[in-house]
Design a protein around this nucleic acid. Structure first.
Length: 296
DNA sequence: CCGCCTAAGATACCGCTGTA
DNA sequence: TACAGCGGTATCTTAGGCGG
């Protein structure tokens, strides 16, 4: 039997792709103190093939056993499309998240949730009426028949064949405020690689993407001609190390850096938590009405 | 309309497990 | 050993079917 809250779970994994039990509980079962209800509903969805589970083998949250993560199943998104009458759910990625990338996916979904909550915190008379027009995840498929990543995935961009240069954002969003739409790319940093290696491997792709206005292909409806890359670092110290590493790189002006502890829904849009490579932090949405929707 | 029964979800409690 | 998460189970609640 599928309950209303089961549908909410299917919607959530369709939207965020990879979620753990704790996140689902926070989003859909806030009253569930013991987590038993959440686990039971998840189990019944899995038994019905409406949801997929990926065990997390390498895991140390604080302590305790590894907690699995959940992601969409073909049958689940079919049910969702049928239930809502919206066939766009059928485009949801249902491939299993790579085992060693699971923490990365959870970080992306956590950022996505923070954006959604920041948007919904605005009241009806909010001055900027900010909204996310569209959010693309790394593995959102544009052409299911293709196997080449640059043709299969919406975001993966092959900029040059030889030497090979690609740009593969973790996610992308089109943010709208008072009629202006701007493209933002998302890069989640998990401090697993040295900052200089990250700066070297990522800066050129985005710099060339900007030169060729590649963001126009991802979001033709954008009205602002530039884009910004948002990098989320696990700590403020790491954030500042990244800023320093990107400072001398090509296209450094495209980047803004924030730390996870600053990335609260109530601060995300309007408070100066976004640091450029050089200089003072600014808010994502500028207070000046003439340049709202921009961050640079 | 009533009383009874059943099915399924919600709730509470508990023991097990693997890691720091 | 402490702890967080998992899954088993008993009990409560609610909705619906059914005969009288």
């Amino acid at each position: 039997m599928v309950t209303d809250r089961d549908i909410l779970i299917l919607r959530a994994v369709s939207r965020y792709y990879v979620l753990n039990r704790h996140q689902i509980q926070r989003l859909i079962f806030p009253e569930d103190i013991h987590g038993r209800v959440t686990r039971r509903r998840l189990q019944s969805l899995i038994d019905a093939d409406l949801l997929n589970r990926q065990p997390m083998l390498v895991c140390h949250p604080q302590n305790g056993v590894p907690a699995p993560v959940y992601y969409p199943s073909p049958k689940g998104i079919e049910l969702l499309a049928e239930f809502t009458g919206d066939d766009r759910f059928l485009a949801t990625a249902t491939q299993a998240p790579t085992m060693h990338h699971v923490w990365h996916w959870l970080a992306v979904s956590e950022t996505h949730i923070a954006f959604d909550q920041a948007i919904s915190l605005q009241t009806a008379d909010s001055p900027y009426a900010v909204r996310v027009v569209e959010w693309l995840n790394e593995y959102d498929v544009v052409n299911p028949a293709e196997t080449l990543p640059e043709k299969r995935f919406h975001l993966y961009t092959l900029l040059r064949s030889s030497p090979r240069l690609i740009c593969a954002p973790d996610a992308a969003l089109l943010l709208n405020a008072r009629g202006h739409s701007k493209v933002f790319y998302l890069e989640e940093d998990r401090a697993t690689t040295g900052v200089h290696q990250i700066a070297a491997s990522k800066s050129q792709g985005y710099a060339v993407l900007a030169e060729v206005s590649g963001h126009r292909r991802h979001f033709p409806q954008a009205t602002i001609d530039t884009f910004t890359v948002l990098m989320i670092a696990p700590t403020a110290r790491r954030r500042d190390a990244l800023r320093k590493a990107f400072r001398e790189k090509q296209g450094a002006a495209l980047w803004r850096f924030a730390s996870v502890e600053d990335l609260k829904p109530e601060r995300l849009l309007f408070e100066p938590i976004w640091y450029p490579c050089d200089g003072e932090p600014a808010s994502l949405i500028k207070p000046n009405p003439l340049s709202e929707g921009e961050s640079s």
